[in-house]
Design a protein around this nucleic acid. Structure first.
Length: 503
RNA sequence: GCCCCAUUCGUCUAGUGGCCUAGGACGCAGCCCUCUCAAGGCUGAAACACGGGUUCGAGUCCCGUAUGGGGCACCA
C-alpha cells in the first residue's frame, strides 16, 4: 500500500448537522486510522461564506464525540499541522495559487459569473453545447491582460490551466483505474474573487501539507479525482492514495438519501437523515456505529453485531463494497433494539430520563427504575419510552372510549360486572405488589370462568388507556393502588352511563 | 445531453475460477409461547440483470446491452 504513516481526515463543511452519509465517511476513516494505528484528523472546510451555518462546527464536534469518534488533530485538540480551519489558512492557498500562476499552470480570469451565465445562455440558444467555462482568458496577451486588469479594478479569479489533450488516470483503491479524457475537464476556479479558495485548491493544499496518506471520501467526488490529480501534478506533489465510498441511497434505492423520503409504513414519518435526528429519536451511538459499519462493509464471518474494538481489528478498506446501497432503515431499528436490550436496567433508566424530560413529563425516579426492565424489550428507540409509559406520568388521566373496554365476545354489562369484581379483589389485597395481584386475578378469572385475556385486557385499557403498555400487573404496581382503583372506578362509571344511555 | 461509477434474495451483505444444491442478517409468512405490545423458539418463501466471449469449468475474468446511481458552480 504505502510505507508512509497512515494519516486520514474527515473534512466536513459547517453547513449544519452531519448527514448520515457523512457520518459513515467519518466512521470508515476513523476505523481505518485506528486499525492502522495512524492519525485521524478533523478539518473544517469553511471556505464558503454563504453557506456557513452558525453553530454548525459545535454540532459536528458534539456529534462525532457522541459517536465516540475521537480525532488526533483538529479543532479543540490542536496538532502541529494546523490550523484546522480552512478560513485560517487563506494565506497558504493564495500563496500556492500565485505559485501556479507564476509557473504558467494557472491564470487570472476576469469574467464575472453573470457574463459566463450569459455566454452559456447564448450558446444554448444557438444550439451549441456548453461544456463549462470557455477558457476565454486563458490565452490573453500581456496587453489584453493588463487592460482587463485595470478595467475590472483587479477583480478576478484564478483558474487552473487544465491540459487540453490526453487522459488522466486515477487509481481508486477499490474501483481500480478510472480514466478521464482531459477534454472533459474544465479550467476550474482555484481562488475565488473574494480571495477564498475553492474546495479543489484548499483540499489539495491541505491534504499535502497535512501529510494525508489516504483520501477516503464519498462517491460523489469521483468526477473531481482527475482534477485533483492534475493539481498535484502541477504542484509536483505526490497524490495520496484514494478511495471512494459508495453513496447511501434512500431506503427504496432511489436517489441519494434525503430528508424528503417518507417511510412507507408511516405516511407522515420521514426517514431521519441528520445525525441530530438520530440522536433525538433515541438511537444509541454504539448501535448506530455498529449499524453503519455494516453498510458498505461486512465483518466477513457472518457476524453483524460486534463491538467497535472488533470492528477496528477486522476493518479492511480493500473489502469495501463499491456499490451504492439503499439505507436499511428497518435493520437499524432492529439493531438499536438489540443494543437497548443489552443495557443493564440501571443504565437504561439513566438513558431514558432525558427523553421523558424533553417530552415535558414529570416522571418519578423510583417508578421509572421499577418499570424499566419491563419495557426494555419493547423499545426500539429510547424516545418510545414516552408513549409506552405516558399513563404513569400524566397529570390528568383521560380514560379510553368505552367501546375499547369491552373485550371480544362480552358485552358492556358483563364487562362492568367483571371490572367491579376486579375492583373488589384488588381493593381487598393485603399488599399491592404485582405477584400478589397476578395470583389473585388469575384466581378471579378462573372463578368467573374467563380466559386470562378476557379479564386482563379490560383492566389494561381501564388503567392505562393505551394500546400498548408494559405488562399489566407491573403497570398497576407502578401506578399504585389508589390510582389504579380510581381508574377502574372511572371505567365502571363510564360503562354504567353507557348502559343507561342505551336503555 | 456529456462524463464517470455500480449491478448476488424486497433490503444490507458473504462469496476473489471447482468447497455454491449460492451462506448470514433485517424484513415478510406460518406455527409455538403469551395479559396488550414486544422479546424468544421453530419452520418457510425469497437472489447471481441480460447477451456474448475466455476456460475442462464462471456468481467469480473480459466485452457489449439494460437498469440504477453519481457528477457536470467563484458549493463542498
Amino acid at each position: 500500500m504505502s510505507d508512509k504513516p497512515v494519516r486520514v481526515r474527515f473534512a466536513p463543511s459547517p453547513t449544519g448537522s452531519l448527514h448520515i452519509g457523512g457520518v459513515r465517511t467519518a466512521l470508515f476513516n476513523w476505523l481505518f486510522a485506528r486499525q492502522q494505528k495512524g492519525a485521524f484528523i478533523l478539518r473544517i472546510e469553511d471556505t464558503d461564506k454563504k453557506r456557513y451555518a452558525e453553530g454548525a462546527v459545535e454540532e459536528i464536534i458534539n456529534g462525532l464525540r457522541w459517536l465516540g469518534l475521537d480525532w488526533d488533530e483538529g479543532p479543540e485538540v490542536g496538532g502541529d499541522k494546523g490550523p484546522y480551519f480552512q478560513s485560517q489558512r487563506l494565506e497558504l492557498y493564495r500563496e500556492w495559487a500565485e505559485w501556479l500562476v507564476a509557473n504558467d499552470k494557472a491564470y487570472r480570469c476576469y469574467a464575472t459569473p453573470e457574463e459566463l451565465a450569459e455566454a452559456e445562455e447564448q450558446a444554448k440558444k444557438r444550439g451549441l453545447r456548453w461544456t463549462g467555462y470557455d477558457r476565454r482568458h486563458r490565452y490573453l496577451s500581456e496587453e489584453e491582460r493588463q487592460r482587463l486588469h485595470e478595467e475590472r479594478n483587479g477583480v478576478h479569479v484564478i483558474r487552473f490551466k487544465m491540459p487540453i489533450d490526453g487522459q488522466t488516470r486515477v487509481h481508486d483503491l477499490i474501483r481500480g483505474e478510472i480514466v478521464f479524457d482531459n477534454k472533459e475537464l474544465n479550467d476550474l476556479v482555484l481562488l475565488k474573487s473574494d480571495g477564498y479558495p475553492t474546495y479543489h485548491l484548499a483540499n489539495v493544499v491541505d491534504d499535502h501539507f497535512m501529510e494525508i496518506s489516504h483520501i477516503m471520501r464519498g462517491e460523489e467526488w469521483i468526477p473531481t479525482a482527475p482534477i485533483h490529480w492534475q493539481l498535484y501534478n502541477a504542484f509536483g506533489w505526490e497524490m495520496p492514495l484514494i478511495l471512494h465510498l459508495p453513496v447511501i441511497l434512500n431506503p427504496n434505492g432511489k436517489g441519494k438519501m434525503s430528508k424528503r423520503y417518507k417511510l412507507p409504513e408511516g405516511t407522515d414519518k420521514f426517514v431521519p437523515v441528520l445525525l441530530s435526528e438520530y440522536m433525538e429519536a433515541g438511537y444509541l451511538p454504539e448501535a448506530l456505529v455498529n449499524f453503519l459499519t455494516n453498510v458498505g462493509w461486512a465483518f466477513g464471518d457472518d457476524r453483524e453485531i460486534f463491538t467497535v474494538e472488533e470492528a477496528i481489528e477486522h476493518f479492511d478498506i480493500m473489502r469495501i463494497n463499491p456499490a451504492g446501497s439503499a439505507f436499511p432503515y428497518q435493520k437499524l431499528e432492529w439493531m438499536n433494539g438489540v443494543y437497548i436490550r443489552k443495557l443493564s436496567p440501571e443504565e437504561l433508566t439513566e438513558r431514558l430520563k432525558p427523553f421523558l424530560e424533553r417530552a415535558g413529563l414529570k416522571y418519578d425516579e423510583q417508578k421509572l427504575a421499577f418499570i424499566t426492565p419491563y419495557i426494555q424489550e419493547r423499545l426500539k428507540t429510547l424516545s418510545e419510552v414516552v408513549d409506552i409509559t405516558r399513563f404513569l406520568w400524566v397529570e390528568e388521566f383521560v380514560p379510553a372510549p368505552v367501546e375499547e373496554l369491552i373485550p371480544k365476545k362480552l358485552d358492556a354489562e358483563q364487562t362492568k360486572k367483571i371490572l367491579q369484581a376486579v375492583y373488589d379483589t384488588l381493593d381487598a389485597l393485603p399488599s399491592f405488589d404485582w405477584p400478589t395481584q397476578e395470583a389473585a386475578l388469575r384466581q378471579l378469572a378462573e372463578d368467573l370462568g374467563l380466559k386470562a385475556g378476557q379479564l386482563f385486557n379490560p383492566i389494561r385499557v381501564a388503567t392505562t388507556a393505551q394500546r400498548v403498555a408494559p405488562p399489566l400487573f407491573q403497570s398497576m404496581e407502578a401506578l399504585g393502588k389508589e390510582e389504579t382503583l380510581r381508574r377502574i372506578k372511572l371505567a365502571i362509571d363510564a360503562l354504567d352511563s353507557y348502559l343507561n344511555k342505551r336503555d
